[in-house]
Structures are given as C-alpha cells and as structure tokens.
Design a binder for these strands. Structure first.
Lengths: 134, 134
DNA sequence: TGAATTTATATGTATATACATATAATAACA
DNA sequence: TGTTATTATATGTATATACATATAAATTCA
C-alpha cells in the first residue's frame, strides 16, 4: 500500500530529526495537541489524534513515566482521566518544535512545495471523509 | 501529522475487511509481493516494501509459523535467506484478494475516484523521491 | 593469502497500533 | 429506586515498526 510506504519514510524522517529531543513524532503530536489546552480526556485526545483510545492509553504511559504528562481525575465523571502537560511537558515543546520544523523543511525540499500542498490538501479532504466511521 | 492519521484509518479499513482471511494488510502486501516471484531475500523484499530489513525479519516470523512462508538458504551467498510462498501461502492469495479489492472499493466510495487518483499520483511521486535516502 | 572492511540477517529493546474483553462508573428506564 | 444499558478507560494479546548492536559470511586489499 502506497500510503503506508510513504508514511513509514515520513515517520522515519521526523523521528530522526526529533531524536535529539528524545521524542518520536507520535509523542510530539500528542504533547503539541495539549499545548494550548488545559487538559483533555483519553477519549477526546483519541478523537483529536484520530487514533484508538486504547492506543492512547499505551502511548501516554512512557510520557507520564518521563514526567511530561500528568493525570487528573475528573470530579464530574470519575471514569474520565484528564491528561495534561506537566511543567517539563510544556518545557519540551520549544525544544522539539524547531526540530519538527526542520523535518518539515527537509520534506518540503525533497518533495517540493507544490507537491506538499497538493498532498496536504488531499489528505485533509480524505481525513474529513474517513475521520469517523469506516 | 495528517498522513499518519489517514494511514491509521486506511489501515483499519483494510485490516477489518481482510479479517476473514486472517491476514493484515501488511501481511497481504508481503505475500502478494512474492506471488509472481520465485523468492526474494530479506533485503530485496525490504526494499520492495519500503521497510526496514529488521522489520521484515519480524513480520516474516508469524507467517512462517503459520506455514505461509518458507525459507531457503542461498547456496551462492550463505548469509542470504530466500523467502518464498508455500503451497498454503499461494493458496491464501485468491482468498484474500477479493477482500482486499472490497476494501479498495469501499475507500473509493468514501473518497471518490477523483480524489483517490489524485492521492495515488501524489503518493507515487512522493515515494520516488523518498524511497531511498532521507 | 590473511587481515580489515563491508554486507546480510538476527536480536535486544522500545514505541505504535488496534481488537477483544474486562471493569468501573454513569445514564436510562421500568 | 433498582435494574439494565451505555460509556470511559484499562488489560491481554498480537502485529508493525525501527534503531543499536551482534554475528556470520563475503569482499577488498595490502
């Protein structure tokens, strides 16, 4: 499958560039999503990241162990866990962001700005149609 | 990352459709690549699938245990393992292929033929630029 | 030819991913 | 209100993925 092949290479490029920060691209995406927010539940975060809630439970674990994420119990609904950035979690974003930008630039160089724009447009439209329900 | 989100959903769709065959889309891709060939080494197969050779070593394992793949030692180069389909491996392709087509059709319905063609074109061009060397 | 280098694959380790199922808590309803 | 159904998350299990490193075999070269 084409898209799986391309994604493997793209993930590799981002992961290699982000390596000095100690984050993977999946981890950076997760942290970055929480950057402007107070905190989100597992379910909300899963929906935002278009991933399975059970995947998120697992992905949160190493980040929480490294002290980048913290969990609060929702008083209104005691089933929910509210996930938010810790101090360290907020602090790592400005370290990782420039690396992420560099990966983005490298990709733009490899593929060309026109192709990137075309691809992003097609992916955005596809996401909308695929986001929920298959 | 957009492409990672889309790929997760697309993989899910293919995996669900292929479930009756007991294959994942990654496994189907691997077996299908060997269908017209005699056999390929780990390295050749990795390159064809745009994946890491170490990933392939792992992916082969469950398929070999299920008797779908077999390994031959290359007489010319005793480091190389030649991977090929077994009888059972050849037999499962005609079972899985229609399911794979169905997933493809479902995706075409969701995204539209025009968008699919656009996306495939962009992905093919991207693959060419990304395939080797990052 | 013998030592150094390169190449092919495997292993250790870690994250990413999702399904089936379990559990606990909330919501619905009779 | 008490029972049932639904919802949020976690766990068990399995595959997918790749890097660092190990190992063995082939190649290079002095």
């Amino acid at each position: 499958m084409r898209i799986r092949k391309v994604t493997r290479r793209v993930t590799q490029i981002y992961d290699q560039m982000l390596a000095p920060s100690g984050l993977t691209v999946a981890q950076f995406s997760l942290l970055a999503r929480l950057w402007p927010e107070e905190s989100l539940s597992i379910g909300e975060l899963a929906e935002a990241l278009v991933t399975d809630p059970t995947t998120l439970t697992r992905n949160i674990k190493p980040l929480a162990e490294r002290g980048l994420l913290q969990t609060l119990n929702d008083a209104e609904d005691r089933r929910r866990r509210l996930i938010g950035l810790t101090e360290a979690g907020r602090a790592i974003i400005p370290v990782a962001y420039p690396l992420w930008r560099k990966a983005q630039e490298q990709l733009a160089t490899l593929l060309g700005a026109r192709e990137i724009a075309n691809l992003n447009g097609a992916l955005d439209r596809s996401l909308e149609r695929l986001a929920r329900k298959g």
